[in-house]
């Protein structure tokens, strides 16, 4: 274990994960403005079918409780229902990383908000998908951050009951 306190890193906790249709960063006040949250269920647009690509999705996130710099990515994965009690996932892809620096002289209650944009996000088939945040480790691996994730069910409008 390092004895240098400036090298200590504590991973943050995820407070919020919300996919939205639009996100704009205001450079003046360093705040995100988001519009049209996706909710938990979405329908394909008229005439579309699976496999389906959403042209643009923004995932708004809030993190808290970190210490030191951390690289964060969003993993997009499909939940596989196998008629058992066990839920498994198939990883579809991982976003580009955002580096977040939780400064050592600030409160651990400080919250950071950032947004991960995705273009042509794929939904191979009808079902539930998940956005979850991962921290990128120094060795290149990743570890899931504690806190909330976000489920998004993509449905075909003609197959609803």
């Amino acid at each position: 274990m390092s004895t240098d306190p400036t090298s200590q890193v504590i991973l943050p906790r995820v407070l919020l994960v919300i996919p939205v249709q639009e996100a704009v960063f205001d450079l003046a006040d360093e705040q995100w403005e988001v519009k049209q949250p996706f909710g938990t269920h979405r329908f394909l647009p008229p005439g579309a079918d699976f496999p389906f690509r959403e042209p643009e999705v923004w995932v708004y996130t809030q993190l808290q409780g970190g210490l030191g710099p951390v690289e964060v990515v969003v993993e997009f994965r499909q939940r596989l229902d196998e008629d058992t009690d066990r839920v498994s996932y198939r990883s579809v892809g991982v976003s580009a990383a955002v580096r977040i620096d939780f400064e050592r002289n600030e409160s651990r209650l400080t919250i950071r908000e950032t947004v991960f944009g995705f273009s042509l996000l794929p939904f191979r088939e009808e079902g539930t998908y998940e956005f979850r945040l991962l921290a990128v480790l120094a060795g290149g691996g990743t570890v899931p951050l504690s806190g909330v994730t976000c489920d998004l069910s993509m449905l075909h409008p003609e197959r609803r009951v």
Partner: peptide, 18 residues
């Protein structure tokens, strides 16, 4: 006032996914 401090985000081209 929003308690969160904003950080510029990233965009990812997912056209090669899946």
């Amino acid at each position: 006032v929003n308690a969160a401090k904003g950080i510029p985000g990233t965009t990812t081209d997912c056209s090669t996914w899946d």
